[in-house]
Design a protein around this nucleic acid. Structure first.
Length: 288
DNA sequence: CACCCCACCTGCGTGC
DNA sequence: TGCACGCAGGTGGGGT
């Protein structure tokens, strides 16, 4: 479900309603998530007040008044939302936090790939050490990307999905970004030019920002903290559109599997580069 | 080190 | 109707 835009939509929505709220009670079920603090540890949330909400990549961080950090990762199907106490609970609820307002903060996760970990004051969550640069970080430049990818052979799609470089890009937006810049998803990342990196970075920022503005992408079950679906799915150019005409040239969109993930691309707008850049240049100079 | 594969889960759509 | 299979927005551990 959630890539950076979806987590950011959740963060902004929750910030309006949760900051200043105090948790009165914590209720956890026994089903294991991918990673999850045990019930006794989560009791540390009781009596604490939310001071602010931040995001790193796809991680949401709920900061508490005593310096503790509650780290939330939504995995594939995690949802975080507020529900009036009187409302019946949906299925697959794994954590329930009673707020003093009477609302309940609910964590629901069908596939249980999510993470809910409470960190003591002064401790940086270990998970965040692996997280790469934020898309809008000033340190993230075409030069930095060229340096990090130099000599590497993996497909650029896999590089974009590797959150240790750029944080927050997931399977949907990786395909969308590559379509926007006309790069074949299998192009070896070490062969991307500085100009191409500049275009990738620009497209990455533009597409993620647009997705946030649209409220995220809802394919099956993403919803913001009020249960509203995100509308960016209407703007997807290639993701999930195998066999449909390319919105730019009409060629049939194709699907291939990279690193075990579906990848969508237009064979005409994103041609495979059969020759290396050097060979291409020589070929042109011979003819020209 | 770089890279790939797979497990971790449940649910839904499709085709037989 | 029922069943088997493939597929789904993420991550990290282990193997090559």
């Amino acid at each position: 479900m959630p890539e950076l835009p979806e987590v950011e939509v959740i963060r902004r929505g929750l910030a309006k309603k949760l900051i200043g709220q105090t948790f009165r009670e914590v209720c956890r079920n026994d089903q294991r998530l991918r990673r999850q603090s045990e019930a006794p540890a989560l009791a540390g949330l009781v009596g604490r007040t939310v001071s602010r909400l931040t995001r790193r990549g796809k991680y949401l961080l709920i900061h508490l008044d005593d310096g503790q950090t509650f780290l939330v990762h939504l995995g594939m199907t995690g949802r975080l939302f507020l529900l009036p106490a009187a409302c019946p609970l949906p299925s697959h609820v794994h954590l329930l936090l009673e707020c003093q307002s009477g609302q309940r903060l609910i964590y629901q996760d069908v596939r249980r790939f999510g993470q809910l970990i409470l960190y003591p004051a002064g401790v940086t969550p270990a998970e965040l050490r692996q997280v790469g640069l934020e898309p809008w970080s000033r340190r993230l430049t075409p030069e930095w990307l060229a340096q990090k990818s130099a000599g590497r052979t993996r497909p650029i799609k896999n590089f974009l999905l590797d959150g240790r470089f750029i944080a927050g890009i997931g399977n949907i937006y990786a395909s969308e970004i590559l379509f926007a810049v006309g790069l074949h998803p299998q192009k070896p990342v070490g062969q991307i030019s500085l100009m191409e990196w500049a275009a990738v970075l620009q497209a990455c920022r533009r597409i993620l920002a647009r997705a946030i503005r649209a409220g995220g992408t809802t394919i099956a079950n993403f919803a913001d903290c009020e249960g509203q679906a995100g509308l960016f799915a209407l703007q997807l150019q290639v993701y999930g559109r195998a066999g449909e005409p390319c919105p730019v040239c009409g060629t049939s969109i194709e699907r291939l599997v990279l690193a075990g993930r579906s990848t969508f691309w237009c064979p005409r707008c994103q041609p495979a580069t059969l020759a290396t850049p050097t060979e291409g240049r020589n070929y042109q100079s011979v003819r020209g």
